[in-house]
Design a binder for these strands. Structure first.
Length: 274
DNA sequence: AACGATCCCTGTTGGC
DNA sequence: TGCCAACAGGGATCGT
């Protein structure tokens, strides 16, 4: 799944390709992929002819500033990826972007939960950026700030970690891993954490995300996340909680459990996590 | 305002 | 073995 580490790895791959590139042509093959575009504004018309200035990221959102001040925005959803330098044979290419003297960039997304748009800074702020809190890697809040946000919230901790307004970038996999590392059960009421537990939670975020980055991200099966060059990430085999229900905890040997929180799976060790 | 459920979509998986 | 329903999930939206 593309969560913060996978999106950041994508950004790093795309940066040398996109930075300074001029868009010659775009092909929107699946209209649903162009969303959150203000009525009347034309994605292709806004992108063609523009020079891309940089490759940035906020949470799971990819941001490519253009030379006219607008921003080419992309969210990979759950099955999306940006492919560079591959043939078009694999299918599911939803949006194709042709660059001057650079390889084609293809937005591939079988399930079409991702989207792309070209927006002004204001439109970004009002739209896809409206509910994005601090980036979980680049702008991790202090313990006190985090304690403030969590206090008074009755929702399960796992649900709050998935709330992009609280922390931008965590998804289902890395939220489970962060909770394992922090030794906190996903169904704990967010507001019930002691100061020491909030500290443990905060301290778990960066190492988990950095491990994901180090091992090339988490690739599940065939259609979930590959790097832009087509390689699979290797973090799946190093996960402690996510998807390991029925398997022994890597720390204590107890059987990892799976439960459902907010219609989403959550995995935890009943011994290590309290 | 916070919370929880539902919906979108399609490849994969599991049960019969 | 083959078919089909259930499942997976990020985020918008809606009802409470």
């Amino acid at each position: 799944m593309p969560e913060l580490p996978e999106v950041e790895l994508t950004r790093r791959h795309l940066e040398p390709v996109l930075s300074g590139a001029v868009v010659d042509d775009t092909e929107v093959r699946h209209e649903r992929m162009v969303r959150r575009q203000p009525p009347g504004s034309d994605f292709a018309a806004l992108l063609v002819g523009r020079r891309i200035e940089a490759a940035d990221r906020h949470g799971k959102l990819l941001l490519f500033p253009l030379d006219d001040g607008r921003i080419w925005v992309m969210h990979l959803g759950m099955s999306g990826r940006l492919a560079v330098g591959e043939s078009d044979a694999e299918g599911h290419t939803r949006v194709l972007v042709r660059l001057r003297r650079r390889p084609d960039v293809r937005f591939v997304d079988p399930r079409t939960f991702g989207f792309t748009a070209v927006l002004t800074a204001g439109e970004l702020q009002e739209g896809p950026g409206a509910h994005l809190g601090p980036d979980a890697l680049e702008a991790l809040p202090s313990v006190d700030e985090l304690a403030d946000v969590l206090s008074g919230r009755s929702a399960p901790l796992k649900a709050v970690l998935l709330d992009q307004q609280v922390l931008a970038g965590l998804g289902n996999i890395y939220a489970d891993e962060v909770l394992f590392r922090a030794r906190l059960r996903p169904d704990r009421q967010a507001g019930s954490l002691s100061h020491a537990e909030v500290r443990a939670l905060r301290r778990a975020v960066r190492p988990v995300l950095e491990a994901g980055l180090r091992y090339g991200g988490t690739s599940l099966g065939d259609l979930a996340y590959l790097l832009p060059d087509g390689r699979a990430g290797e973090y799946l085999g190093r996960l402690h909680a996510y998807g390991r229900d029925g398997d022994p905890c890597r720390r204590c040997g107890a059987v990892i459990r799976r439960t459902v929180i907010r219609q989403r799976s959550a995995h935890y060790c009943p011994e290590c996590q309290r």
